[in-house]
Amino acid sequence: VGYLAFGSEATNAHLRTAFSQGMQDLGWLEGRNVEYRFVYANGDVHRLDALASELIGQQVSVILVGSGQSAHAAQQATKTLPIVLAGVGNAVGVGLVASLAKPGGNITGFTAQQDEVLGKLIGILHEISPGARRIAILLNESNPLYAAYWAGAQSACAALGLVSLRVVASTPAQLDAAVEQMVRQRAQAIVVTSDGMYFTERAKLQELMQTTRLPVAYALRDHVVAGGLLSYGYDIAANYRNAAKYVDRILKGAKPAELPIEQATKFDLLINLKTAKALGITIPQSLLLRADDVIQ
């Protein structure tokens, strides 16, 4: 079983563990009846194509991917080898599969309507800082959902009477300049979209965001564990654990084209009270009651 990771070994360790645990629960034991080949792009989108070819060369039976960028690289590399998605955003919209019920090709697994969830995330941020009118939206142009994220953010902000500011960072080297741009544009709050590179660089990103002293909302919970203020999105580790069910069925002879794609239905609201206190923000009680998890 191959795993094409957009991130690094360190930033993806808990996802690898979640997947291996899911496999173990289904009777697949590493070194006994299954072997794993893990390859990491370390957040560099240009390395993915070569890594996908490397996995195919190692004659893996199935490739697991967890980001839109990894999924596209795997799709470009093979039209026959099964590919399992561990929660890639909007699989139909970005052209990975024909439909959820009948994927039709060599790709199946989990998807999440990340572009739709973004609107809710902006609404939650607005509840926490109703006075913030200028909202910076951090986007990665190499993400297949880039256009959908920006369109979704614009309409969500417009509905609330807010101004959306487009800020692009597509490589780790561009993060510093992106944060400087937010400050220059007088942003009053920030939204970080769901992206593999931001996930990989979450420690550095958190340090940069802290310098702005602004409330920041994230699509992924891992950013909040790293010290961010709040997140609303699906639990990635749970999707990796559940992806094992697809890999199990494929290893037992099932065809990806005939395995319907599941949509992530559980979205968690995570709030970091320690960060809120440091920023001098009081979280409304109504929101705390809705939170699935609160970091003290």
Score class of each variant (00 low, 15 high):
116 E>Y: 11
217 A>N: 05
242 N>G: 15
171 T>Y: 02
203 A>G: 09
198 Y>K: 00
168 V>D: 01
115 D>P: 03
239 N>P: 07
158 A>I: 09
154 Q>H: 10
213 R>Y: 11
232 Y>K: 14
182 M>T: 05
117 V>H: 12
197 M>E: 02
187 A>C: 05
230 L>H: 00
121 L>D: 13
119 G>A: 13
167 V>K: 02
162 L>V: 00
228 G>M: 05
153 A>N: 06
116 E>H: 13
212 T>V: 09
144 P>V: 08
189 A>L: 10
162 L>M: 00
217 A>V: 13
118 L>V: 09
175 L>V: 01
174 Q>R: 01
161 G>F: 06
122 I>C: 04
244 A>K: 11
150 W>C: 07
225 V>Q: 15
225 V>A: 15
182 M>R: 04
215 P>T: 04
182 M>D: 02
169 A>M: 02
145 L>S: 14
164 S>R: 10
207 E>F: 06
237 A>P: 11
193 T>P: 01
218 Y>N: 06
213 R>V: 13
126 H>F: 10
163 V>M: 15
236 I>P: 12
199 F>C: 08
162 L>W: 00
148 A>N: 14
192 V>W: 02
144 P>L: 08
126 H>L: 09
220 L>T: 13
146 Y>R: 07
131 G>Q: 12
141 E>G: 03
244 A>W: 04
115 D>F: 11
116 E>M: 14
241 R>C: 00
119 G>Y: 05
207 E>C: 08
206 Q>I: 13
190 I>V: 15
115 D>S: 11
189 A>S: 14
211 T>F: 00
156 A>Y: 00
247 V>D: 07
173 A>E: 07
130 P>T: 11
160 L>C: 08
173 A>H: 04
148 A>G: 09
165 L>C: 09
134 R>M: 10
